[in-house]
Amino acid sequence: MQQLYAPVLQLEHLTKEIIELTFRSSYLAETIRPGQFLNIRVDNNFPLLRRPFSVYNVQRDTISIAFNIVGLGSSILAKKHIGDSLDIIGPCGNSFDQFIDGDYDTAILIAGGIGVAPFPLLTASLLSKKNIVTFLGGRTKELLVPNHLSNVKFATDDGSEGMKGTVLDLLKKDLAENNYGKIRFFSCGPSRMMKAVGDFAKELGVLCYASVETSMACGIGICQGCNIETTTGDRKYKLVCCEGTIFETQTIKLT
């Protein structure tokens, strides 16, 4: 893990609502693993705290994040110019690596909206090992980004793309219609979605790994601000930033 400055190379709208910001850092491009995040100081003085962003893609010595504008941090990032320097601490958090291998045939990737961000790298790691089916859900098609994924199916609340309904509705329908052999879930998105997906995984008796989001200050395990309640083990809480962000959903309390 390092603290470094990286120059912005490109800012691109993937949809009306989702932006990909690419910058150059050979260190991060070499060391980042699927599911890890970067803690970025979006501006010098305001906001005060860094903001965590999942890594979206890596190409040679460049690395990118994808986000939609939800608050102050992301709206400042969306106005960066090419050549601006980003103050980054990373790579942070655990990765999907340790959860990829195992006795299953098909990885089922389930994302809500911008929760898709860690999935291109996960897909790249899975491709040579497992079959992949990806389910993307969002309010509208403007929140769906199917780039760098495999075998993608869509659900939108307004029906503007794919099935009208939630990504869980789509997942349930699809699994009823298809036989993917032994499966394992990987999910990322709003907490309520991940909880519902985790509950469904429990019903099916399959493992489900979710990348959890909480507010954070340091992102490196020192402030203890990003706790999540556990359901197993001798500790009531774990820290999302350094013991996660990826947990098996039955080991944590999602709300």
């Binding site: 507010s215 200050a217 601000g225 500790r235």
Partner: peptide, 10 residues
């Protein structure tokens, strides 16, 4: 154990 989440806000 400490307090429940959320523990911090800017």
């Amino acid at each position: 154990d400490g307090n429940p989440n959320p523990r911090i806000t800017e």
